[in-house]
Structure formats: C-alpha cells, structure tokens
Design a protein around this nucleic acid. Structure first.
Lengths: 230, 230
DNA sequence: TATTATTAGAGAAAAGTTTCTCGATAAAGA
DNA sequence: TCTTTATCGAGAAACTTTTCTCTAATAATA
C-alpha cells in the first residue's frame, strides 16, 4: 500500500536547495512589509521587489503549506509564521562554535541569530590565551572540553571557524559529541558520519564565481578600467 | 556568417554556476597533491576524494580549456594553472572593503586572498572612531572618500560588510566610484546599475538550508537528542 | 606484439529547476 | 448583477545540470 503524502509533509520529498535558500529573502521582505502595517501580499509584489518570477515564488511558498487567495494573495502574518515553521526557526537550537579567531568573533557577534533558530551558547579554542575570556558575552572553553559538554548539553549544531588544517579534527570531535549538523567555514572537505549534515561556507567558492564573471566581463569589453599589459 | 567559438573561449556561453563553485575545491585538492610531488591526476581520483561523479569533473575541467590523456589523466601543474587562469586568479584585482566591524576585520585578515585574485587595499567606515586606524595592516578611511579614491585608483571590486540598513547606500557609492563587482555580505537585496555584478553572501540563506534539514531530520527520527516538550 | 585495464571525451538520457499557459476564483467597478 | 481584472494553483514546456553509455586512446602486462 502506498501512502500519499501532502507536498509539505515533514517526512515528504526533499525541498529543492534553491527554494530553501530563497526563503530567508522572502522572510526578510515580508517582515519589512509587516512593519508597514500591511496584512496581505501577492507573489507579483514579492517578485517585483526581489527580481524573481512570481510563479517561482508561488511554488516556493507552496512548500511551507500555506494557501493564498486569488486576487488577494497571502495573509502576511500567517505567511511569515509558515516560513519560520517550515525552516525550523520556531524551535531554537543551541550551538557550539569552535575557533575564536576573527571570523569566529564575527559570528559570535552576529545579530539576531536566535530569531533564526540558532543560539550560540559557547565558543571553543585550542589557544590557551583565548580560553577563559568572553567574546560578545560567550565564554571560550578549551577544545578538550568540547565532546563532554556537547554530550551533556545535547548540543546538535557545531560551527567550525578554525583554520583549514584543524577543521577535520574539530569535525571529528563534533561528531563524537553527538552533533548532527555542522556549519563549516573552513575551506576543507570534511569527512563525517552519515547522520551528520554538513554545510560548507567556503568563501573561495563564492569568490571564484565573482572573479570569473568579472574577468569575463572585462575581457568582453576592455574599457577604461582594465588596462591590458602594454 | 556564424563564427563557431571554442567551448572555453572567453566570450563564449555562460559557465554553469555550480561548475564555477566547484573549481576552488578542485584547485585546493590539486594544490595538496602538488605538494606530494605528484605530476598527474585523473578525474576518478578527484571524484573519489571529493565525493563527486568523475564525469561531472571532466565536464567542469573542460571549461578551463585543458585536455587530458586517457589512462593517464591531466598534467597537475598545467591543470592548476588552467583553473587559475579560467577564474581570473592570475590578474589580481584591487578591492575596497566597507564596514570595519567584526566581519570586515575577519575578511581583512583572511589569508591568501591575493592568491585568489583579490587584494583588499583599504577599508572604509562611517564611524569616526575607526577611521585612521589600521586593521590587519589595512588603513581605514572615512566613507566620504570612497568614491574619489575608487575612481582615482580604478578599483573594480567592492566588499560590503556594513549592517543591512546601510548596504544600499554603500552600493550606490560603489557604483558611483566605477566599481564593477560587489561582494555583498549584508542581508539586503541591492539595486545596482546593470553593468555591476553583485554576489550576495547572505548567511541567513545558508542557515535556512541547514536548519530546515536539521529540523526535518529530527522530525523523521525523534531520537535521544531532541526531547519533545513533555 | 597482442591483450587487458583504465580513462578522456562526446553525446544521450535522466533528473532537477524555472518559466509558461490556462482555468478557477475572488474582488472591484460598470 | 454582470463584466473586468488580478492572482492563485496545477500541469506542461523549456531550460539547466547531472549522470549514464559508448568509443577511442593510452599504458601496462602477458
């Protein structure tokens, strides 16, 4: 017997990655509209402001399980709530951050992560000089305590902001501590147990795309700005 | 008359974004192989280590214009050079960074950007307290000098690490200064002239993908780690 | 030298994503 | 009330990206 699942059922098929990544853009825009005392919004309007096709937005919003009405659109408050629920931003997850360097400090000071389901509760670092200090109100512990504290506090999310050579070792510790999701800012390909979700935030990957397009654009119309070697 | 272009010709068709974003992963891995005194590499080997399909890698590498040999693979040094050339990492571009906060400082201290075609030469900030100081050896200028200096120095790349409300204004200044590429770390949808390439590095977009998958994974098997409200 | 195993490269097929088309529905105006 | 207009929602079509299949080339081995 085959059980038909609703499209937006939790255990249903995977949601396209591009759709997932557009959700926060909708969310942000809708929040701003909400501040302007609006109560309804249409895909046409969202698309116009964000530069997306309205049909695409309709398909994306379908994943959240909300229904709109022709000629009117979607109820704003309910739509925002649906997105937050869909993304799991209702239940805030505690997280550990490893690597209290520049980037780590930046993330520790990032505003409003808690509004987006992420609560960084502590930092870890191998450097004894950093241990014991607090950064943006978050205490820094020695790396040796990571596994024990993660297990005891049931921490599910780990954030890696260490230099590349240490990244795999930190990932191993996180897996040993029972973490299920790793947000990896080190430019490294991590090997983890199958139950662990890894998201890589490799800046060089983004940079590659940017610089290739710029190089191509300069090659196409070598104007005033790009002096070729004379 | 129709002129047939080579696939890898500079003015040719657009390279898929996913392919572009995989290039730095190949580059990194190949560099490590190079350190191990290797001279040849096959797609099979790259795929095994990075977890990609070898055919996909072959298609990606085709864009760089390099040719491999059956049974042998690609010459390692030439392949690395081809990737760097393809991504425009040979000609280093100067860049200005605006927003000398936590994240800005992290980027100013990022290692080896110059090896990847990006040379951040100066920072800018609206905050008078930050102006005049140097962060990781890069001087901080007042925002008012951005346009003039960008024009004079022919700066093509701008990096935005200001809070969201100031992002559009900074983008406008960058466009006015003649910049052609913007790397935007603010969670904002920027409106820019058509010739300007914008790359958004919205952390909330990545976080959304991560937290949705984690929430789904927890919902699927509510094991020891996720205590439901009793 | 012939055979075998491996791999690049090209093209086809499959899978995934975006855009288009159309009917249904709801609101506003004639 | 009837017509017009705007928009949702569903399915089809177009496009993009990944994976598969096959051939030819190359080196190693018998």
């Amino acid at each position: 017997m085959v059980v038909e699942l609703e499209k937006h059922e939790a255990a249903g098929r995977a949601v396209p990655e591009p759709s997932l990544r557009r959700m926060p853009l909708y969310h942000r825009m809708l929040k701003q509209l909400m501040d302007g005392q609006r109560t309804q919004v249409t895909c046409t309007e969202i698309g116009l402001q964000l530069g997306f096709d309205p049909t695409q937005i309709r398909k994306d919003l379908e994943y959240t399980g909300i229904a709109g009405r022709p000629k009117v659109g979607y109820p704003l408050g309910a739509l925002i709530a649906a997105i937050e629920s869909f993304l799991g931003w209702n239940n805030v997850n505690d997280a550990f951050l490893v690597g209290a360097g520049n980037l780590g400090a930046a993330l520790l000071g990032y505003p409003h992560f808690a509004d987006y389901g992420l609560n960084i509760v502590a930092a870890f670092d191998r450097d004894e000089a950093k241990v014991g200090r607090a950064i943006h109100g978050k205490e820094v512990f020695p790396l040796s305590r990571l596994v024990g504290l993660a297990q005891r506090m049931h921490i599910l999310i780990g954030i890696i902001t260490v230099p590349e050579p240490a990244a795999q070792e930190v990932a191993d510790l996180m897996a040993a501590g029972g973490m299920l999701a790793i947000w990896n800012f080190a430019p490294a390909h991590l090997k983890v147990p199958p139950q662990v979700i890894v998201h890589n935030e490799n800046l060089y990957c983004s940079l590659a795309s940017l610089s290739q397009k710029l190089a191509k654009s300069l090659a196409a119309k070598p104007g005033d700005a790009a002096p070729p070697s004379p």
